[in-house]
């Protein structure tokens, strides 16, 4: 469920990135790479788990599934927070700078 959540997050981010390209004001590329990287890593985790459990891997207990979904959504929220921090620090639109500095009239 965590893998599925991060894959969906990666797909949605990639679609939004492609729709807005070549503009990169929101730094969506960072979010795409981050979710794809995590998805690939969880895919490996899933393969190893499948090798251990076999077909049982595909029929988890409802409580485990719910916990994994909760974890997946929390991971997506954590990823969004990382992206937001990077976006505000890099400030590609100059919004933060404009809020911190007042332009002097010539």
């Amino acid at each position: 469920m965590t893998l599925l959540t991060s894959v969906f997050a990666a797909i949605i981010c990639t679609i939004i990135w492609y729709k807005n390209a070549p503009k990169n004001e929101m730094k969506l590329g960072i979010l795409c790479w981050m979710f794809w990287g995590a998805s690939l890593m969880w895919l490996v985790d899933a393969i190893f788990e499948y090798a251990e459990l076999g077909a049982e891997y595909f029929s988890p207990a409802p409580a485990d599934m719910l916990n994994d979904l909760f974890l997946g959504l929390s991971v997506v929220a954590f990823g969004l927070i990382i992206w937001l921090v990077i976006l505000l620090i890099k400030d590609p639109k100059g919004i933060i700078k404009a809020a911190l500095f007042k332009k002097k009239n010539a």
Partner: peptide
């Protein structure tokens, strides 16, 4: 940098899972 972002991002999110 694409590789860096995948590795750093993936590691950060997996670290969160390990904390969880």
């Amino acid at each position: 940098k694409w590789l860096n972002r995948m590795l750093w991002g993936g590691s950060a999110l997996l670290m969160f899972e390990h904390i969880w």
